[in-house]
Design a protein around this nucleic acid. Structure first.
Lengths: 147, 147
DNA sequence: GATTCTCGTAACTAATATAGTTACATGAAA
DNA sequence: TTTCATGTAACTATATTAGTTACGAGAATC
């Protein structure tokens, strides 16, 4: 797989679920869509379950489905549920022994925090329903190739 | 060392150079300031040299020094010279086979690009001279502990 | 000229993070 | 009872990054 894999895996799965809410998808099917392993899928979607974004059910006709209407789930919800922010402002040392380091940290951390805020603001403006809707829109071409 | 180590190593070194422009610092001294190895320092500062930010000289009284006045070197210059952006918007696949993936990529990449732009805008507003100046300002406490 | 100091760089090792895999337990429906 | 699905631990594989060793080359000093 690739980098940012958790977020893209999650969004991909949720986008499909948004097209058929209530109908469960198995880890196996999702794994095939993403060319990865069912266990990896469970690990990632487990994070979303902990945040009340999806539900999982065992046994026959079990699998994963949305816990809420797709229009109420934003990309920000998913991004934050994954818990691996792109920008992670963390001081190199809590008590910098050197003033240059302290000045540097302050500036860099502030810039990172603001960039992360911009990221989340964008993600808040987009819902899972929007992702699912993309398939109905003028993208029949891609739709034909999709699983 | 830690993550973001190249940028912090570079800014730390440049901050010190800004205090005594023209006076070279050796890789060894810089390495000690950062609890790392002289070779690592040369690798990082070599990137800055390629971008005309610092100069290196061999032999006696050699070492590293600023190639330009500290007030003309912004954090953005350094950040870009390092070549390891915090946000690296890169498509997971150039020709997504699934419309959900395509929609997701578009949204996520756009958000990342904007966040990166915010980051660079902040970094452009701060120069190496500002970092060096932090030592003169009301931080004598930390200054006493610094090398 | 020989020595010493410094960077330049290749090659290797170590540490870390991430993803992938195997294996097995648990629960639910057929 | 069988089958299907998740839950999770433990291990392996891979990639990235930093650290290290070693040695070459240039420049100043002795």
């Amino acid at each position: 797989m690739k980098q940012d894999s958790k977020l893209s895996l999650a969004l991909h799965a949720l986008g499909h679920m948004a097209r058929a809410p209530g109908q469960p998808m198995t880890s196996d099917v999702i794994a095939q869509h993403n060319a990865t392993n069912p266990v990896v899928v469970r690990r990632v979607l487990g994070l979303l379950r902990d945040k009340g974004i999806v539900l999982s059910e065992k046994g026959h006709a079990g699998g994963w489905r949305l816990a809420r209407p797709p229009a109420t789930i934003t990309l920000a919800d998913v991004y934050l549920a994954i818990g691996e922010p792109f920008l992670r402002p963390q001081p190199l040392s809590d008590m910098p022994s050197c003033a240059v380091v302290a000045a540097m940290q302050g500036t860099v951390l502030a810039a990172m925090a603001e960039a992360e805020a911009v990221l989340i603001r964008h993600f808040t403006a987009c819902t899972i329903a929007d992702l699912g809707a993309a398939m109905q829109d003028g993208m029949q071409q891609a739709m034909r190739n999709s699983l």
